[in-house]
Simulated scan of single mutants.
Amino acid sequence: MGHALGIEFEHLSKDKIVANMPVNENSVQPFGVLHGGASVALAETLCSVGGWFLLEGMDKTVVGVEINANHIRSVKMGGKVTGTARPINTGRKIQVWECEIRDKRDKLVCTSRCTLAVVNR
């Protein structure tokens, strides 16, 4: 999914994950603006990578169990968005992450919260 949407990671750390995504023919809805599902896919990708990054050892992984999104502003085809995900809570069995997606003018496009379960591989 990340490859199809053109997601490119810019920053990876335990407290912040940042990636860019073009608004193009793969990520717009029929009216030529960023599809809400593409925003959610970007958010869940960032949160899941961040959650995986926090795990110790290779016997566990994370899976999304819930995600919500509030779509604030549209972005036209030809634009670009940047998602920034940060952990809110990182328990042994559940992680909660938040993700903000902003346009190239740093205007908020979407805010999302993602709950991940930590499970055995």
Rank of each mutant, 00 (worst) to 15 (best):
E25T: 08
C99M: 02
S48P: 10
P30V: 10
N89H: 14
A4P: 00
A41Q: 10
V62E: 08
E66G: 06
L116C: 10
V62P: 00
E98N: 02
P87D: 05
V62D: 08
M1C: 05
G78Q: 10
G79C: 03
N68V: 08
M58W: 05
A43P: 10
G36I: 14
V75I: 09
V40N: 02
N68M: 12
A38T: 08
G36E: 15
M58V: 12
N120G: 10
A19E: 15
I17T: 07
E98Y: 01
L12F: 14
V109D: 12
D59Q: 14
L116A: 09
P87T: 10
A19I: 13
L55W: 03
V28Y: 04
C47K: 04
G50Y: 10
S48L: 11
R105Q: 13
N26Q: 12
N26M: 09
I17N: 04
V96K: 05
H35I: 03
C99Q: 00
N120T: 03
I94M: 03
T82Q: 05
V28I: 15
V63N: 08
G79L: 03
E8P: 03
K60D: 11
L116N: 11
L42P: 13
G78V: 10
E100V: 02
D59Y: 08
V119C: 05
I88H: 05
L108N: 04
S39F: 13
V119T: 08
H71G: 14
C99D: 01
V23E: 00
D106R: 12
S27H: 00
L5H: 02
V63I: 15
G83H: 08
E56M: 09
N24D: 15
L116I: 13
P22T: 12
T90Q: 12
Q29T: 14
T82K: 04
L55R: 01
V65S: 13
R92V: 07
H71T: 15
A85D: 06
V63Q: 09
I67E: 02
E66H: 08
E10N: 14
G37K: 00
P30K: 13
G83N: 09
H3W: 01
V62W: 05
A41K: 07
G78H: 07
H35R: 05
V33K: 08
A43F: 11
R92S: 11
M1T: 08
N70C: 02
R121A: 15
S74W: 02
A4W: 01
R73Y: 04
V18G: 07
D15Q: 05
L34K: 06
V109H: 13
I88W: 03
T111M: 11
G6M: 04
S74K: 09
V33T: 15
A117I: 09
R105K: 13
I94A: 01
R105E: 14
L55K: 02
V40K: 00
V65A: 13
A69D: 07
R73E: 00
K107G: 09
N89A: 11
R113A: 09
L5K: 01
W52I: 02
E10A: 15
